[in-house]
Structures are given as C-alpha cells and as structure tokens.
Design a protein around this nucleic acid. Structure first.
Length: 315
DNA sequence: CCTTCGTTCCGCCATG
DNA sequence: CACATGGCGGAACGAA
C-alpha cells in the first residue's frame, strides 16, 4: 500500500500536519478499503506544537519506506534543522519518494536543496523571506500549489488540502479524490496550480461570490454551456464574470468548465465501462477526439490507458 | 497537419 | 478619488 509519512519536527504547525494526516487517512477506494497507510515520523519521540504535545511513533528511518513524504510548516520556518533530517529527506527523494511541503514547510524543503532551480510556492506572507534565503528557488507566491512531479509545494494551510487532494487524484483517480473531498466538505473545484491569493480575503460577501454560479455549472456539465448563459445565471455581464473568474479562481470561465468536465470524465472512466464516446457526451466534452485531447493535457495518457491503470489499481 | 470560422479572453476606456 | 462595472474590438483560442 502507498505509504505516506508526515514529518513532525519540533514546533510543527498542527494544522498543516493534521491536514495531511486526516485527508490521506480517510481516503478510500470504492470498495471501502483505505487508499493510504499514514504514519508520523520525526527524530524525537515527542514534539511541541503550540499548546499541544504530540507523540511521534516513528523515527527517521521510516522515511526509507515512504512513497510520499509530507513536510508541514514549523512556527519558525527558519529555525535550524538537524543535518540528519535533511539527509533522510534527500535520500528518500533520491530513492524515488515524492516530497510535498505545506505552507512554510517549503523552507525545510528548500533547506534540503531539492528546490534549487525549481519553482515553488509557500504562504504568501513568507514568500519574500523564502526567496531571500534561497535565491536559487523560483518562488511564485500567487499560486495555490505547484506540482513539480516528485517535488510539490503548497501555499497556506488550506492550500495544503488542495495539494493533498491533487496527489490523491493523481495516485488513485478523480473518484477517490472526489470522495475524500466530500468527506472533508471541501469543494474540489480549485484544481491545477491556478487559483490565486485573493486580494480582499473576507471583504467579499456572498453577493460577490461565484460559488452559486460554480454550483449551477457543475450541475449541468453535460449541457452545451456558453459564456453568455453563465453570465446570465450570474446576473452579470460577460466582461464581469470573466473578471471574477480571473480574480477568484485564477482561470477563465470556459477554462474552469473544461477542467470540471475532464474531472468528471476521469471519474466515469475509472468507475464504469462506458464507451469513450458516451463518456464524452455525458461530460459535455462532445466527442471522443476532444476528450482525448483534454485528458492527454491533464494526465498525459489516452482514455483506455487511463482506464486500465485505475481499473487494475482499484480491483 | 492545416484552415476556417465562431467563441472566448482581456486591455482599454467611459460610466456610475 | 477609489472602485466596480460593462461595452468595444482585436487577438487568441478551439472545435470541426
């Protein structure tokens, strides 16, 4: 089984750590079997975490078996780390493990040198500091998360959830991820590395929220939706809806719509034997050819290959 | 692979 | 003045 190892160093941010632990621990296949085995490891048997004290059952040698290693943030992201810890992370990565950081956990990831020359993100408030301390890392504070294949980074705590769901989706498909998202009562809509920091966080009232519109769209993916129709439902001009999508989701209306359609298509491919053409119709992607293009763009594979990969892993 | 043609996106600017 | 809106037009996109 896929082993997820969450690192617990002293003064770990409980929210980051718990996000990863809970979301992976609860992910299930359709038949109810857990998708991951989750352990927490660190050099010390006990760590402080704000007002909490956490027992850490596994030592660093546990990283040697992990398929995925999660680095949560620490209260002081610049506090020194034991070389042995950094070595363990580097070795695990060299061995083929996937390493992902949440929030300011990116500082620890950067300390290993694994981020040098690569793009990374972190909490927007710490982005400048990360960049200053690690000039070789290309810091992008505007995105929710960055998937660099074997190295992933995410922004603030909530974005860590997005990243975890993203990993679940690439490991076991859209259906399993969708299910995990539902358990967390988390809308899986903000995929990609696209969504941005919103300039006016809480000032945006319900009246300015796109949520109802997104819900409306999600319910009719199979229909032939136009930008005009969406603007109409939103009671806004085409120009303004487009702008809202940019500001709030970092994408365009049709771009978001297509992403949802592909997600749905993946889910159907994973769980049924419906012909590709029928899947294309059911998701509003129109034709098998079109579905092929979009699926390849997101996953790099064909519908049949995608289906085969997930059918075997679930069955 | 290329072309065609309707759709979509976004900078710019006037308006409230 | 700050800010959000929405129309316009050209560029870019994408489906067939």
């Amino acid at each position: 089984m896929h082993l997820v190892c969450v690192l617990a160093l002293d003064n770990v941010i409980a929210f980051d750590l718990a996000t990863a632990v809970e979301i992976f621990r609860r992910a299930r296949f359709a038949d109810g079997r857990p998708s991951y085995s989750v352990i927490v490891a660190g050099p010390k048997r006990t760590v402080r975490s704000g007002p909490l004290s956490l027992g850490v059952p596994h030592r660093m040698d546990a990283l040697a078996k992990a398929h995925t290693i999660i680095l949560p943030g620490r209260d002081d992201p610049t506090a020194p780390i034991d070389q042995g810890v950094l070595d363990s992370i580097r070795n695990a990565h060299a061995r083929g493990a996937r390493v992902a950081s949440i929030c300011v956990g990116a500082f620890d990831l950067a300390a290993t040198g694994l981020l040098d020359g690569h793009s990374a993100t972190t909490h927007w408030n710490a982005a400048a500091m990360l960049s200053a301390r690690h000039p070789l890392v290309r810091v992008d504070p505007s995105v929710l998360f960055i998937d660099g294949g074997s190295i992933l980074t995410s922004a603030g705590a909530a974005a860590g959830l997005d990243l975890c769901l993203h990993m679940i989706e690439s490991d076991f498909g859209a259906a399993v991820a969708q299910d995990a998202a539902r358990l967390a009562v988390m809308p899986i809509g903000r995929g990609g590395g696209q969504a941005q920091f919103i300039p006016h966080p809480l000032a945006r009232e319900r009246s300015l929220s796109l949520d109802p519109v997104l819900e409306w769209i999600s319910a009719r993916l199979a229909d032939q939706l136009t930008l005009d129709a969406i603007a109409n439902v939103a009671q806004l001009s085409v120009r303004t809806v487009t702008r809202r999508f940019r500001d709030q989701l970092g994408t365009t209306p049709m771009g978001w719509l297509t992403a949802q359609r592909v997600r749905l298509a993946r889910s159907i491919l994973e769980t049924t034997d419906l012909p590709v053409d029928a899947v294309a119709t059911a998701t509003g992607l129109g034709s098998a050819a079109n579905l092929r293009v979009h699926l390849a763009r997101e996953t790099g594979t064909s519908p049949s290959a995608y289906r085969r990969a997930f059918r075997s892993s679930v069955a």
